[in-house]
Structure formats: C-alpha cells, structure tokens
C-alpha cells in the first residue's frame, strides 16, 4: 500500500511526506516495547504515541508509515526526525480500532 492509499483509507492528512513510503502489513499498538517485540518489516504502525521515540522504534523495526490517531498533533522534533529517517506520518481523526478496520485490507504482521 502506498502512502496515498493509507492516507485515503483513514481519511487522514499527511503530516510528514515520504512519497516512496510503502506498507505491506499492519500493526496497531501504543506500547513501543510491544512494537519492538512484535511488529515487523514493512508494517504501517497505528498508534497514538506522538513523540520522538516512536520514530526511533519505527526506524529499528523497519516501519515506513505511521498512522497517528485522534488527530494528535505531531511535535516539530518528531516531524524532523521522521523526515530525516524517511518515515512518513499520517494523522487521522479515527481511533486505533477504526483506523485498523480502515486498513483491514493489509494483512497482520507475519510472525
């Protein structure tokens, strides 16, 4: 799924644009240690964690797109880090559950 497709699916806005960002599966969690432990390469991360450390985790597990729920504001340092590391951010008014449903065409992370 491309960034644009993710954005349209969750009726969101692109807060950090990385045009070539892709997602092949999805993972929803607000617990970054859980993301570290269970998310996989190429997953779009559905979360409400709008801070710098989310980018660090995504970079490590190989996530290229983050969907931040409830239209939480993206702090400037997070946006900067995302741009630097090539991680796209989409903000959506949806909840984590609703965003997960909206992206249900993506498979869960393969274990």
């Amino acid at each position: 799924m491309t960034l644009d497709e993710v954005k349209d699916a969750v009726a969101g806005n692109v807060a950090v644009d990385v045009p070539e960002a892709q997602a092949s599966c999805a993972y929803a969690s607000d617990l970054l240690s859980d993301v570290m432990g269970h998310s996989g390469e190429g997953a779009v991360l559905i979360t409400i964690q709008n801070h710098l450390n989310t980018i660090a985790v995504c970079t490590l597990v190989g996530t290229e797109i983050i969907v931040v729920c409830h239209n939480r504001e993206i702090p400037p340092d997070m946006a900067e880090a995302a741009k630097r590391e090539g991680v796209a951010i989409v903000t959506t008014p949806l909840s984590q559950f609703a965003a997960s449903v909206a992206l249900s065409s993506l498979p869960p992370v393969a274990r």
């Binding site: 607000d30 617990l31 970054l32 240690s33 859980d34 993301v35 570290m36 432990g37 979360t47 964690q49 801070h51 450390n53 989310t54």
Partner: peptide, 15 residues
C-alpha cells in the same frame, strides 16, 4: 505514558 516501562525490555532482548 511514553509507551515504555511495560516490563518487556529485558524479555524482548532475551528473546
């Protein structure tokens, strides 16, 4: 509140 401290760090590293 930042999404850490759930007690998964050591067990994640071990795994």
């Amino acid at each position: 509140s930042l999404g850490f401290g759930a007690g998964m760090g050591l067990s994640n590293s071990k795994r």
